[in-house]
Design a protein around this nucleic acid. Structure first.
Lengths: 388, 388
DNA sequence: ATGAAAGCGCTAACAT
DNA sequence: ATGTTAGCGCTTTCAT
């Protein structure tokens, strides 16, 4: 009892963290037994284990991750790297401060606030976290807030030293950096690999192409549309490109000629899409269906149409792509193709785990199915369901 | 040259990762010089550094984080722990699969989909990431998807072994676990500490109280409101409580008696708030201003009012709290108190860094100012500004 | 079932 | 300025 108290005090007073040695001494066993008791409890006699557990409890022992990783040659940590585009602000030095009153300000309406891929990242992150947790691993994130390439590379290799594998969001890191990282840890790409196809990277993505194809086929088969226009995103976006390919496939599969469909470029931008649509209206060039390469643009299109009292979908059908929140809160709600972003994350981690277990396997490549969500912007009124 | 090629091949063929020893040999120096060259480049002669850098480049050397951490007794990693409430679903085993077509489904409107604190978490996370990056640290996240206490504790101490300090979201971990963790690593609490006040935890929070007080004062001073009702959240929420305290303070500061203001409990729920409001309307008990303890409830209130053709704010003023996205997209937009969630994260990291640098300092406690956003639900029409 | 001992890859005195 | 060496706290043979 005396011993108990003194050791307890000792542990609490000394700011030093207890180690296996301390536990071993306290329990009267060797460090090997302590280690074993933790790793494979069945390999020690129950009585011994009991002794050890008590010592651990008494000392408040927590194993050192670094030491474990070093000895076991694995960290149990997976790195997630995604660059975040809209962080160009407030990199100022942050100082802690307090004021007594709340700030007050008038908050006038804005209309240019239509960029939001943070939700995309957020969902992928959550998926990674979920799967990582299910498998007893940890997740280290890096939103890649850095700008210059040199810094990014530094950052990335820093991380590479701390994890068993790196999950990298497409185009958040220069290809050269990827090639470098890859020499040290397995890399799983999300959404896209360098040079678009197999450079031997493990890859998890979503079928942009099939999604758009299915959408177009639906429009033709159910709504007998034969008068399309396509609102495209930026030329350098692989997603944009694949969606367009899917669009063409859909048309061709129904014996229609993609060449005859006008394409407008709106750079994934709400504002541009709106302007373009306004322009179409002025010039009486409005088609029966406006297929947009993403939701933001579809929302901009809707705005322009509604401002001109053009009815959706009675006069014009509008469709988007991605399934962002706003596509659901908009009036009317936008028919769109939902990407399983959460599952993208889960799949990425799963892939990484497989890779880790099987370092020499052929490159893994997974394509997750998307879901076409039929909503009012194409179908008209849909009866509600669900609580309320 | 021959040597160059052979060593390059050697490095690429052997799947083993190069270590300091390899670099030292390759560069013809000692491991100490390698280490120095990396840590404090000025402490080695430029020529030597050059030699080493080349060797590193050739070998594709990346330092082992585990070894560094073990030797240096610090990991350079900060842990972020926040439990995520709405993850009760899809914990199923995730299997990689592919299908050829996109799924298609009708997506009927829902109205019960008004919970969303994930944005809250998301912003705090981003703040942490930002600050953590600025300081050259890494961030390990744990969304605490686990449910049972035992598992949570296990999870948490796992993490504790891998980080220099732990940032914990209020109430995402049982108090007992906190006390345990604390014995091993510094803990910074976000939003609230156990037993509400100083148990000696470092603390970063937001001034709920002042925010609500300022809001009420504004309503009285500018809109001459003397007929309030208060829609409260759950009794066990510290935030809810503090907001109510602020509400009372605001009234008293203008010589009004909080006792005379009816309180309705709506559990932070959109649906309940709406029902309650509907009820008020039926019974002709509608006050001049409805102050809600959060935005969700304010949105529910708005719905009920509008369904009954009651004008906002001409007939009834409605206010929320938090500044969630929906408060801005709603029609009318909701006057609310915005919490600086992003800065909460930054402040948490800053606090942690200070703590790490100064282990024996008194507990740090920071209260971040909030901002009262005046919008249409209280002010009526506000001229727009900004692009479009 | 348990213990002894040899690393794991690095940092940080301490020498030189 | 550079090299030598002793750990850091654990895992993992290899004995016993």
């Amino acid at each position: 009892m005396i011993q108990f108290i003194s050791s307890l005090l000792g542990a609490m007073v000394s700011s030093k963290k207890p180690t296996v040695y301390d536990v071993a001494r306290e329990a009267g066993v060797s460090i090997a037994s302590v280690s074993r008791s933790l790793r494979k409890p069945d390999s020690v006699r129950p009585a011994t284990r009991e002794l050890i557990d008590q010592a651990i409890e008494r000392l408040g022992y927590v194993p050192s991750g670094s030491a474990q990783s070093l000895a076991a040659r694995r960290t149990g940590v997976i790195g997630l790297f995604m660059s975040n585009l809209d962080e160009l602000d407030d990199l100022s030095d942050f100082t802690l401060s307090s004021v007594d009153e709340a700030n007050v300000e008038f908050d006038p309406p804005r209309r240019d606030n239509h960029h939001n891929d943070s939700l995309y990242f957020d969902q992928v992150l959550r998926g990674c976290e979920l799967e990582t947790w299910r498998r007893g691993l940890s997740l280290m994130v890096n939103l890649g807030l850095n700008r210059n390439e040199k810094g990014l590379t530094q950052l990335a290799s820093d991380m590479a030293g701390k994890v068993d594998g790196l999950i990298v969001m497409a185009r958040s890191v220069p290809d050269s950096t990827l090639e470098f990282l890859r020499r040290r840890v397995p890399v799983v790409m999300v959404a896209d690999a360098p040079s678009d196809n197999e450079s031997g990277y493990d890859l998890v993505r979503v079928s942009n192409r099939k999604g758009m194809r299915t959408l177009v086929q639906h429009l033709i088969d159910r709504h007998h549309i034969d008068d399309f226009a396509y609102i495209a995103g930026p030329d350098d976006s692989p997603d944009n490109h694949k969606r367009y390919v899917g669009f063409c496939e859909g048309l061709r599969s129904r014996n229609m000629n993609p060449e005859t469909v006008p394409i407008y470029r709106a750079e994934f931008s709400w504002t541009i899409a709106r302007t373009i649509t306004q322009d179409m209206i002025s010039r009486h060039k409005i088609p029966r269906a406006l297929v947009c390469a993403n939701d933001q643009m579809a929302l901009g299109v809707c705005r322009a149409l509604m401002d001109n009292d053009i009815r959706i979908p009675q006069d014009v059908i509008v469709t988007g792509f991605d399934g962002i929140k706003e596509s659901e809160t908009n009036e009317p709600r936008i028919t769109t193709v939902r990407q399983p972003m959460r599952n993208l994350g889960r799949a990425a981690v799963s892939t990484m785990v497989q890779r880790l277990e099987n370092p020499d396997a052929e490159p893994f490549s997974t394509e997750l199915p998307v879901t076409l969500l039929l909503r009012e912007s194409s179908e008209g009124r849909i009866p509600a369901r669900g609580g309320d």
